[in-house]
Design a protein around this nucleic acid. Structure first.
Lengths: 119, 119, 119, 119
DNA sequence: GTGGTCTAGACCACA
DNA sequence: GTGGTCTAGACCACA
């Protein structure tokens, strides 16, 4: 389900959050499906349960899953989440462009050739 | 000269690096100008000299300043550095766009209205 | 694992960098092996953890190790690093030879008898 | 007579020593010629007299000049000094080759193409 | 005075 | 436990 990249410098829990989030947004994990338990996932990716727990809490806070006591964690996808993600991506691009502005680097020049997905 | 943002979660030394770098790239600090001494800057922004030292070392490593032992630190700007920065900004935008691709979010839609600096 | 030479005038952190680097290039420390923790090595060679930390950061920057937060530091050797080291050694010899040229000292004379390792 | 390189990372006094030494070994400064006074040279290269003094002391220690109280400093060249310099260069090359040995890098490979001065 | 290194120890996020 | 950052202060070579 999830493969960690040990050469990635980001914290493990952040990698889990990002990967789970993408699986949900992409529809690979469908709404109301049950997710693996904290312990099961920890074993699967051989990491500490604390780390998985931290990732799950963050995903719940962001609205990507809900937990039912005694039953487990479930996917909670809805259209709003994709919008939320779009906003997030857009803000990250804006942050970069703001930096460019400060250095008097032309925005169009920077974005040139990036409008379309390369395949 | 430099104002720290205590709400910023990044380490202090990183904020110093980024701000000095921008001042140099913007031409506010001109080549061969002497920079404030490690101790002077530490007092000015009320931080520890070691922290400023760490920032200065990183700036030297990146080619933004050079150091003459016993005399001080001096600005060492050249055109290549701006190109290097442009590459860096471009790569950061590409990383965001790659994420968008994975979620089937349209690139043009995401970039809409960002081509020009808002004023 | 590492023995410091207190007669060596170079800074302690530089000696650590050089020795670890050699152990990695020689293959004594194999890729993905875990390195001693900052604190453990500091105790072993009776120096300050900050000094070891500085050495580890430099080794990471040079590509000889990678760090997983909360887990530790690991060896990250690849062939390119040895090539890089060869270039470095060659350049240092060239610098000496250039000095010799300026004094009209014959290169061959200087290099005589050095082509083969003494055993 | 001497031009300092401010982008050179070595200490100023070391640059002075090296440059004076080369001028003497090359015969540009002839034996028993009077050298500029500490103060005169300090003004000429706009540095601190302490720095020139340190360089002169080192040159005297190495046998490249002698001082006559009340008169000044004089060049003291003799054949032995060139031999001394050759030994010095040779030792520096040997140090590099010893490093190569430790990494199992072939000496001949490293020295290939360096036997003759490029022009 | 100036940068560079180091000690001794604290605190934090992460696992 | 592990790396990363930081404080407060010392000492050194160099100018």
């Amino acid at each position: 389900m999830i493969i960690l990249d040990y050469k990635d410098t980001r914290p493990v829990y952040e990698q889990i959050v990002e990967k789970m989030q993408n699986l949900i947004l992409q529809g690979v994990l469908e709404p109301d499906t049950q997710l693996p338990s904290v312990r099961a996932l920890a074993v699967e990716i051989s990491t500490n349960p604390n780390t998985v727990q931290k990732a799950y809490s963050e995903l719940e806070r962001r609205g990507f899953m809900y937990t039912v006591k005694g039953k487990g964690a479930f996917v909670s996808y809805n259209e709003e989440l994709l919008d939320w993600k779009k906003q997030d991506l857009r803000q990250r691009i804006q942050a970069v462009l703001k930096e460019a502005d400060e250095l008097h680097i032309n925005r169009s020049e920077l974005l040139q050739g990036l409008e379309n997905k390369e395949e």
